[in-house]
Design a binder for these strands. Sequence first.
RNA 1: GCCCGAGUGACGGAAUGGUAGACGCACGGGACUUAAAAUCCCGAGGAGGCAACUCCGUGCCGGUUCGAGUCCGGCCCCGGGCACCA
Length: 834
Amino acid sequence: MNKEYNFLEIEKKWQDVWEQEKAFAASNQEDGRPTFFGLVEFPYPSGDGLHVGHMRAFSGLEVVARKRRLQGYNVLFPIGWDAFGLPTENFAIKNKVHPRIVTDKNISNFLRQCKSVGFGFDYDRQVDTTKSGYYKWTQWIFVKLFEKGLAYKDTTTVNFCDACAVVLANEDCQGGQCDRCGTAVVQKEKSVWFLKIRDYAERLLQGLDTVDYTERMKREQRNWIGKSEGLQFKFAVVADQAKSTPTMSKSKTKGVKNVAVAGAPSTSTKTATPKKVGNFEVYTTRPDTIFGVSFCVLAPEHPLLASLAGQITNKKELDAYANECKKKSEFERLNALDKTKTGVQVQGIFAVHPLTKKQIPLFVADYVMMSYGTGAVMAVPAHDGRDNEFAKKFGLPILQVVQTADPKDTASKDGTLCNSDFLDGMSVLQAKAKMIEYATKHKWGKAKTDYKMKDWAFNRQRYWGEPIPIVDCPKCGFVAVPTKDLPLMLPHLDDFAPGADGQSPLSRIESFVHCSCPQCGGKAKRETDTMPQWAGSSWYFLRYMSPNFEGGVVDKVAYKKWGQVDWYNGGMEHVTRHLIYSRFWNLFLYDIGVVTHPEPYKKRTAQGLILGEDGEKMSKSRGNVVSPDTIVKQYGADVLRLFVLFIGDYEKAAPWQSGGINGCVRFLHRIWALGQNLDDSVDISHIDVNECIAKVDSDIEQNKFNTAIATLMTLLNQMGQKTTRRLYGDFVKMLYPFAPHIAEELWQVCGYQGRLPQAGFAQADYVLTAQKTIQIPVQIGGKLKGTVSVLFDSTQAQVKQAILQDPSLSAHLQGVQIKKEIFVPNRIFNFIVG
RNA sequence: GCCCGAGUGACGGAAUGGUAGACGCACGGGACUUAAAAUCCCGAGGAGGCAACUCCGUGCCGGUUCGAGUCCGGCCCCGGGCACCA
């Protein structure tokens, strides 16, 4: 071999070979090989193409997949396109091109880029969520959810993005801003389809104990699900006798009994027995503090206010306050610098404490949310920061009921109960349990588990999505489109801009809207909203197993072969979005017998972002985006692949440094040059090859690609100008997962047998021809004084002898009293002196 | 406010409680060259010293240990997640 390293030529050559050979095709046949299913998040094919961040995201499992192939695995490493969604639609509207055309163009560009860096995806298994053969099954899953009562339509207050003109799920607007465009989300009353993900909250939580996700991911998901345990109970509401007339109108509230509350309220000076006019429920996680309740707070939109309008004497004032609150967007409420409590007392009625029977004032305040718990809270100002702030502002009593070691630490949960009747002296934990038991026994409350996670708002008022396969029949109500009629095709449309009135573009197509009811055959109308982008991505990993299967979501034989994803890598931003949704859908498919694993992914890791050279997140508006095309053209695919992994810790963000690329370029050139100097007479006994192989092997398994590459660089440095054929071959094998083009070429031009992936991974069975010598640090009195050169695995006596024979070291020991010797084999020798 | 993660050379980053700074970049010196680029060799945490060597060094303060970047306690700062969640 006497050729220059020409990456353009080599990379083209091997990419063609791989394509012709279908080198990365997974086999659904049973052939005795172990299987590996590696999954990367399928990209959204935007018009901007892939950026180097995608490259890094894919490169991690690409390396693992290539290594598995060397190790003889049958590898499923697929790629696909999450192609429905707003950016394409917006681009289409702006440029007056159909989203289908935009999508196809973007996909072919993404595909070109993936192939140009030599990613070993199984390109024959591509899935595209916008193809009817795919979304047929997305719709089918929705129909099943509907049939099982897990999809329902409800008119309620939902998150809405004015700029995108769509309803958003909670997961779509974390932090109060629209995920897509950053606009502050507002609350709007809408009729919306929901999926009952809350019904799965507990199982989604429990399932986390059975999977290998990083602790951080599990924590974020647990946090998002937001389980809490406490007591839910009723407060009776009585009319204020002083203000209401004896002939006051009867309450229209259901279940209200006009029965006097037993026992006169001790604080009340009124002589007449107060009339019970209603009740409301509260939820608390601190039932132990119930004796410290000095008022209650309702959310501004709490239904009690409407139902007791007759008794409430300041209804107008309350309505005005509620209107004020509505105007504030969620974003404003979260980010307001001025978070001082506001509220209005409800005049004309009082709540009755269930234990002390005292009448306590009732307030309306926007720090209580209608969407969590019962929309009403018992306020314990001594032991809750928000209640405390409110009580101070409105001059309400603050009753301490938990004594803590530090008197200032009122929120502490390690205190002892006081001023609390039969709870006095108990710990917080004991008192909680006692109170729940007491309330249950006396039938005025019950233990309750609540979750912060909300049901999944599922429809979008846009064109470029899966049509929701539901028919609204005046006689039968909502009826699902029968399976035989799926897919419900997304009709072609020339004007796909959203309606000004927040209506879906599909509602303008008469022929689509008007249909006959699948149940009674009568005239009916179709649902015209489409599904969110998360729908298609919630089950795509299943489709890869049998991408063209027409008989269902996944072919049972293929599922049996691949089952769970062995290793899924993606971004942290999807942990409380896509990852939760897809775990939910998979669990549902498990319940209806489509799949047999309750959890879709055995293991999940996340890559860090590649930041721009300025240390900021890469974005077009900042102008700091690096395109892989430029790097591939200038330095080659292998250099790019190496560099995105060498740049830093794979799981942490790292800034792009164009200067650093040179290191990877030189590395490959030096490898190439060394290949021309193979000589089996070279002594390699100074190189611990076994250790290098073991290190590269284990580093790859732990996403520590930067140190795996560093180990290869060190090994190359140690080999110097000449090395043996065997060692060089093993080096090329280890290089293969990272830089496969040059590795395949070197394997061939250096005359090794066979082809690379079949050649196996490097075997760590080198026989050390010379005994290994190591340097052991010597400490005297805890201070490092030097090192001593000894054979590996020397005994304490041997090392000590070597130290005493070393003049500079033994000089340090002259005239000192050695009290103790600490010897850690192959690590350290430490003399403790007196 | 609550919960995480991190803080190491000019820079990206390495270090099962055992020689801090692997590997790389940038840098300095040298070789090759008419010259430059490329390549190769050498150097390099800081301070002092001709030198051998000495002292100081992983955000700050304290502790445990023969020995701490690593473990513990208390801060500071940065990044992330959740957030009037009852």
